[in-house]
């Protein structure tokens, strides 16, 4: 910890080519997990050999949605909740662009919930990296659709009493064809999950459990270290999870690829094939 920023840049990691280094440091708080997800995404692109000029990154509004600003590709920071709708237009018109959406639990599942289920239903080839920090970080700690029962937020004094979404199940039910869960603690594993999501032709959803150290952590009396240790101790690789007896699953979450289906057709491919038949033409 506490490595000076200049020292980090000196390392000249291979994935730095995906960063707008002149825009660093980021706005994120010390210890925030969003940077880990950006790093994992850049490493994934590097290993896939996808050039900066082939990537569009779209986001909504929130701390997590600030990610595209630091990503050296074709980037669009849009309106709260609507990233997937913007991305749908972009991807449909330019299917050749690898399209990644960065979003948050509020952005994706409160205000953006409708766009999410419809993008998943269409099975459009977009990779969604959803930073689940269980709270509205940017607006300073209000309850979100993923806030656990009992957690402290600024709009649920005394603890959250609203049930939350199981977002992975929701994604699957809506039609996503690749669903994974990773954490900001397990960065190498997260990189692999995002990499497979990008490779997958169809709607990919990667939930990233990510500490909001400054807001969620402070409100719930968890230190930075405790939040990362929680991720380490309470998430279980999916293979081990499957063997776990029901009573030992309580309070824990599986991580890894939760669902993968390569059989369903991808939206833009279906659309442009129809166009070919009808017009025999290019756009």
């Amino acid at each position: 910890m506490n490595v000076p920023f200049e020292k980090v840049l000196e390392k000249k990691e291979s994935y730095f080519k995906y960063l707008r280094l002149d825009k660093l440091p980021t706005i994120w708080c010390p210890g925030c997990g969003i940077g880990q997800a950006l790093k994992a995404t850049c490493m994934a692109l590097y290993d896939l050999g996808i050039d900066n000029d082939q990537v569009a990154m779209v986001s909504g509004i929130g701390c997590s949605s600030r990610t595209p600003g630091y990503f050296d590709g074709f980037t669009l920071h849009t309106t709260h909740g609507r990233a997937l709708a913007f991305a749908t237009g972009l991807k449909l018109f330019k299917p050749e662009l690898t399209t990644i959406v960065f979003t948050g639990d509020g952005d994706c599942f409160a205000i953006g919930g409708n766009h999410f289920i419809h993008a998943a239903r269409r099975n459009i080839d977009v990779t969604v990296v959803m930073i689940n920090n269980w709270i509205y970080g940017m607006t300073h700690g209000q309850v979100s659709p993923t806030t656990p029962l009992g957690s402290q937020t600024t709009t649920t004094p005394g603890g959250n009493y609203e049930p939350n979404f199981d977002v992975a199940e929701l994604a699957k039910a809506a039609g996503a064809t690749y669903v994974a869960r990773g954490t900001a603690y397990h960065v190498t594993e997260l990189k692999k999950l995002i990499q497979d999501g990008i490779k997958h032709k169809g709607f990919s959803f990667i939930e990233v459990l990510s500490p909001c150290t400054i807001i969620y952590g402070r409100k719930n009396r968890m230190t930075f270290e405790e939040m990362y240790m929680w991720l380490k101790e309470n998430t279980i690789p999916v293979k081990a999870w499957e063997k776990l007896p029901e009573e030992k699953r309580a309070g824990k979450l599986p991580r890894g690829v939760l669902y993968h289906d390569d059989s369903r057709p991808e939206y833009t491919e279906v659309y442009w094939n129809r166009v070919k038949q009808l017009s025999g033409g290019e756009k």
């Binding site: 669009l76 709708a85 913007f86 237009g89 972009l90 449909l92 018109f93 409708n114 766009h115 419809h118």
Partner: peptide, 19 residues
């Protein structure tokens, strides 16, 4: 594309416009 609502429609045309 017929989107899920008008908010999404407006968003989609801006996304396509950028493309």
């Amino acid at each position: 594309i017929q989107m899920e609502d008008e908010i999404a429609s407006m968003a989609a045309i801006v996304g396509a416009s950028f493309a």
